[in-house]
């Protein structure tokens, strides 16, 4: 009975459906990967488990809605430039402001807590999450604010699949972001950040200004969250930044754990895997909704996470002792 069902699915869907599923999964996966990467960078550098990361996603998207639509900066000063240029500039500005906000939050709320138990700091970030989300909600509400991206709902047909332009941009931007992060970690400051992550006291002994590194890790994390926030707020995922935007973090959480909390490569792989799994579940498991329930694709990530944790308690790429304080 089940066998015939799967067979039927496979023949109906066929290869086209499969590739469509893969593209959708990758697109979702890159959002998770961007988010997870930022989370892991903050965790590695500062040991802080940042429960406000979902809020940073919303704040980033909110600031882009602000710069690109609400106040139209820098578009209002260069009216003759093509829309995609002014929009891209506004997006960069919004994301940068989001990064600055992350740095300010670290300086105001996290830095004074250095030396306190990490659990307390984690709880503080929960509070931060609530406050930030409330602020964004007040602005955006349930209906959402559009980001007015230049790609709209346009799609391209590549072989057997139809891909929204936004998702092509998204894949490209994610690759650029991953390369940029990799390059950063080879730079002077990046090496200092890795040194700090490995042994904070020894880093201090080299004259590395650890507080600056902390702030920078929050800046990086918030920038990556903001980029993820843009793609979580435009076609085909949503019609704008709204009170639901921050919840993308719930989807990314299994990706972080799956990858292993302190591994950036793990964050990327985990993000893609969970994205693909969610996509596959939503395509192939809908036939089982009488058994699994209708929203199964939303929790498949958690199922995978739990299964992996049973076999590898530190995640796929995590180091064994999540370590010294």
């Amino acid at each position: 009975m089940t066998d015939t069902l799967i067979l039927a699915q496979a023949t109906v869907g066929g290869i086209e459906q499969f590739w469509q599923m893969v593209v959708g999964g990758l697109a979702l996966g890159t959002i998770y990967a961007l988010l997870a990467m930022g989370f892991v960078i903050i965790f590695k550098a500062t040991q802080v488990v940042n429960f406000a990361h979902g809020a940073l996603v919303a704040v980033g998207a909110f600031l882009v809605a602000l710069t690109a639509v609400e106040i139209d900066v820098p578009g209002r000063w260069i009216p003759s430039a093509p829309t995609w240029v002014t929009w891209a500039l506004a997006a960069v500005l919004g994301v940068a402001l989001g990064g600055a906000a992350g740095m300010v939050l670290e300086r105001l709320f996290i830095r004074p807590m250095v030396g306190e138990p990490l659990f307390q700091i984690a709880i503080l970030t929960v509070g931060l999450d609530i406050v930030l989300r409330t602020i964004v909600d007040d602005f955006a509400g349930l209906d959402g604010r559009p980001l007015a991206d230049p790609w709209g709902t346009a799609t391209a047909t590549i072989g057997p699949v139809t891909v929204p332009h936004t998702q092509l941009v998204q894949l490209g931007v994610t690759v650029v972001a991953v390369v940029a992060v990799a390059l950063f970690f080879r730079s002077r400051t990046g090496v200092a950040m890795r040194a700090t992550a490995f042994d904070q006291e020894a880093a201090r002994a080299q004259g590395i200004t650890v507080g600056r590194i902390f702030g920078l890790s929050w800046l990086l994390g918030a920038v990556l969250a903001g980029v993820a926030g843009i793609f979580a707020s435009i076609f085909p995922r949503a019609a704008g930044v709204s009170s639901a935007t921050a919840f993308v973090a719930f989807g990314a959480f299994p990706a972080i754990i799956l990858g292993g909390l302190d591994s950036i490569v793990g964050a990327i792989v985990g993000g893609i895997v969970i994205g693909l799994a969610e996509s596959a579940a939503s395509v192939y498991l809908t036939g089982f909704s009488n058994v699994l329930g209708s929203g199964f694709s939303a929790i498949i990530g958690y199922v995978i996470m739990l299964l992996v944790l049973l076999i590898r308690p530190y995640g796929l790429f995590g180091t064994e002792e999540v370590r010294r304080v």
């Binding site: 002077r188 090496v191 200092a192 890795r194 040194a195 490995f198 042994d199 006291e201 020894a202 880093a203 002994a205 080299q206 004259g207 590395i208």
Partner: peptide, 19 residues
């Protein structure tokens, strides 16, 4: 010693040269 074990030798030296 407290070297940065996860970094390469060269990266350890570069971390040393931060200032």
């Amino acid at each position: 010693r407290r070297i940065f074990a996860e970094l390469t030798v060269l990266e350890n030296l570069r971390a040393g040269a931060y200032t």
